[in-house]
């Protein structure tokens, strides 16, 4: 009886994590290993030569005149702008929810409102912008109707503007949720104490709320950057194919059956994202906050 318990005690924990490990190994680690292997397979002329290992795909992806660099520049630009907007917007929204809305029920209701867009799929949410932003769309129709412009504004659709707009629409909640989590835990007595000491509103914001929100900002940033940098659907649909990020390059290579090149670009993107996440983790100790 006693031995049985010891055995259970020793293996119980392992047993408990087995399902998760199995799922992660099967659906995350194994596919990643396959992608990594593929990224080293030789390609050409029209097919992958499985089992023939070369580093050509990386040499090609990282060479001076490779398409990786302009695509990376596009990725960084789109991601940075999206991040900046969602950060400001997310911070203001969360601040309002946490500090200005007093009744808990209203707080919860407003938070749920922010989740409403997620009742439809991401692709639907993106497509919904098309009739809104088009040449004969709602905005241009109104602007011309009001006599503000004569010609429809072309930049509204099939542009970086449209892509970033859709990201902000879809992703702001990913900034709000972690920010809400940390901001709601700020002890209100701290703010009162600061007020008693004569701190002005901006000083409270700058020296109390923002520093204490840092873990939330960090987690939100990881969400936004990872989701933006790896998306290709919004870029394709809303830029009308006139813009290309690293993720679209990965997709284009894949669609044209050029798996090793697609895999190599994918691994490069993954390494860049991991480095970025690692950097953020060093700046803020997220684990301590969870």
């Amino acid at each position: 009886m006693e031995t049985e318990q010891t055995v259970l005690g020793r293996f119980g924990a392992y047993l408990q994590i087995t399902p998760l490990v199995l799922i992660l190994v099967t659906f995350l680690i194994a596919p990643m290993v396959v992608i990594l292997l593929y990224s080293f397979f030789k390609f050409g002329p029209f097919a992958t030569q499985i089992g023939v290992f070369v580093i050509d795909n990386y040499v090609r992806s990282l060479s001076f005149d490779s398409s990786t660099w302009p695509a990376l520049a596009d990725t960084i630009r789109t991601t940075a702008i999206t991040w900046a907007i969602t950060l400001v917007l997310g911070f203001v929204l969360t601040y309002y929810l946490v500090f200005d809305v007093i009744q808990l029920r209203i707080k919860i209701f407003l938070f749920l409102l922010a989740v409403v867009p997620f009742w439809t799929s991401g692709v639907v949410r993106m497509i919904a912008w098309l009739p809104f932003l088009g040449k004969e769309g709602l905005i241009n129709g109104s602007l011309i109707g009001l006599g503000i412009t004569d010609e429809p504004l072309q930049f509204l659709l099939f542009s970086d503007f449209a892509v970033i707009l859709s990201y902000v629409h879809v992703l702001t909640l990913f900034m709000v949720a972690p920010l809400f989590n940390v901001m709601a835990r700020i002890d209100l007595r701290l703010i009162e104490a600061a007020k008693d000491q004569g701190a002005k509103g901006w000083q409270i914001l700058l020296y109390i709320i923002i520093p204490l929100s840092r873990p939330g900002i960090a987690i939100g940033t990881i969400f936004i950057v990872a989701l933006t940098a790896s998306d290709f659907v919004a870029v394709r649909l809303l830029s009308g194919g006139t813009s290309g990020t690293l993720a679209t390059a990965v997709f284009n290579q894949y669609a044209q059956s050029r798996y090793p090149l697609s895999a190599a670009s994918g691994i490069i993107l993954l390494i860049l994202l991991l480095l970025f996440v690692g950097g953020i983790m060093r700046l803020v100790d997220i684990r301590k906050q969870l």
């Binding site: 390609f43 050409g44 002329p45 029209f46 090609r60 490779s66 398409s67 302009p70 695509a71 520049a73 596009d74 194919g241 006139t242 813009s243 290309g244 990020t245 679209t248 390059a249 284009n252 290579q253 044209q256 050029r258 090149l261």
Partner: peptide, 19 residues
């Protein structure tokens, strides 16, 4: 058709999209 230089074309196409 699929060009003999299709690989080159896809790379250049990616560059063109990003540029």
């Amino acid at each position: 058709s699929e060009f003999d230089e299709f690989g080159y074309l896809v790379d250049e196409w990616n560059k063109f999209q990003s540029g």
